[in-house]
């Protein structure tokens, strides 16, 4: 199904007015077009950046080399960003794989497990004294991304209805958090301290250790404000 026409001859397909190869082609066409269409829906900004014709060409190569391992298409495409990074015809688009990672993170956020976010009241009740020993976790929908390219601006400039904007590639890197807040997927820039705090919490570090990581990233950061911001965003769980 994913190979070339030579494979068809090996099949024991009955021919008549229509040759076996043409009959098999009906199935092959659907396999390849439906899977590339699934990727097209998953990575709309990448489609816009490279043009749909090139996208379909790249996706066709990806589908043949990395067909889905499971029947749920909302799980298909996790390795597409890495594939794009190494795909010679678009390797010069250095930011493309990170934009694809951002879009994949949105898909992950949409389908992640539900979990009640930690509220400010619950945080106070949890830790009257030993705040530093708290082991908080990130909401299951959260992905943290760091890119040397301004991927958040590239992503925003390519949303439906966005004004045509020129994004300077040397505008600086981006720390981005993608997660689900209520029922909406949100993409937000993080400061280096916020990224350090959340990365440490995601790695299972105690709050005191995570706070130290934030201070290393930004020595004069307001730690209580940093924690309050994370709670307000609904991206922490206890």
């Amino acid at each position: 199904m994913l190979g070339d026409d030579a494979c068809v001859a090996a099949l024991d397909v009955a021919g008549d007015a229509l040759a076996p190869a043409a009959r098999v082609a009906v199935y092959r066409h659907h396999v390849l077009t439906s899977l590339t269409a699934a990727l097209e829906a998953m990575f709309p900004v990448v489609v816009r950046l490279v043009d749909v014709r090139f996208f379909r060409y790249a996706a066709d190569r990806y589908v043949r080399a990395h067909p889905p391992g499971r029947p749920c298409l909302f799980e298909y495409g996790a390795s597409f960003p890495e594939f794009l990074a190494a795909f010679p015809p678009c390797r010069h688009l250095v930011y493309l794989a990170d934009v694809a990672r951002l879009e994949w993170a949105m898909n992950v956020a949409l389908h992640a497990a539900d979990a009640a976010p930690l509220t400010a009241e619950a945080l106070r009740a949890l830790a009257p004294g030993a705040v530093g020993d708290l082991a908080l976790d990130l909401h299951p929908s959260v992905t943290l991304l760091r890119s040397p390219w301004p991927v958040d601006r590239i992503w925003r400039a390519n949303q439906p209805g966005a004004e045509d904007a020129v994004v300077a590639l040397d505008a600086g890197g981006a720390c981005v958090q993608v997660w689900r807040r209520d029922d909406d997927v949100v993409v937000r820039m993080l400061t280096p301290a916020a990224l350090a705090l959340r990365t440490a919490l995601a790695g299972g570090r105690r709050l005191a250790v995570a706070a130290a990581a934030a201070l290393t990233a930004e020595p004069d950061v307001d730690l209580p404000a940093l924690l309050r911001e994370a709670v307000d965003e609904g991206c922490l769980t206890a």
């Binding site: 749920c72 949409l110 389908h111 992640a112 497990a113 539900d114 979990a115 299951p140 689900r180 029922d183």
Partner: peptide, 13 residues
């Protein structure tokens, strides 16, 4: 079936 096998989120709800 395969469109609703996710862990959570708005569609399943």
């Amino acid at each position: 079936a395969e469109n609703y096998m996710m862990a959570g989120g708005p569609a399943l709800r």
